[in-house]
Amino acid sequence: MSESILGISNIEVVYGHTVQVLRGLSLEVPRGGIVALLGSNGAGKSTTLKAVSNLLSLENGELSAGRIEFDGKPTAGTAPHQLVRAGLCHVMEGRRVFEDLSVEENLVAATYARTGREQATRKDFNLVYEYFPRLHERRRALAGYLSGGEQQMLAIGRALLARPKLMLLDEPSLGLSPVLVEDIFSIIARINREQGVAMLLVEQNANVALALADYGYIMESGRVVIDGSPEKLLGDDDVREFYLGMAGAGGEMKSYREVKHYKRRKRWLS
């Protein structure tokens, strides 16, 4: 059994045969670990996750080069639902709950992820409700009527019910209030600790993500530009300035009008 649950090496993704989004991206997620994948808008973070879960075809995307291994096996040619059943669960951006189904039915739909493994029982549902008591209160409500935070809980709850070895979390903090973000992330940390689920976490909110992760990658224009432990990334002046919105080397906030800043940013990108 290999050391890492997920290994991505040198992948390239092209949308609609024309737009290249990923250019030789590599990363690794250790078993039971949390890895953060950070970067600005359009860097290709979500695309990376879709490439892993084989959902690119839904958006006319294609993995044109490189190799992805999940749990020691290459994922190429495996249908998305089979990957999920093998223990790779993708919590997509924007929550994507089934709005016309009740909360409980959403969870029932997620039991399909257990096809071919031990069937989900009442205990699994109770485990989800234990992590998210709010979902238990609203279990008969239609998912479309839940608040944004509750929908995010449901999205993670569905993934939890799937008993994955690896969760791909795409921006769980999107559109949530700071208090809720803290709640959701502490539960994510608990799930990782108590259930031993490895996580690949895509975030815009770098501060929160790095507080949780064991390792971080920062992407820009379809490739990894810097990686390392959270301490290293948080200590790096460029990272602090360009991704965390904190003051860089000089200690005071930089203005985009300054030529020096622009040059440094440009060097960083190329």
Partner: peptide, 8 residues
């Protein structure tokens, strides 16, 4: 898409 990602 979400259904597919749920193992359906």
């Amino acid at each position: 898409g979400a259904a597919w990602a749920m193992g359906i």
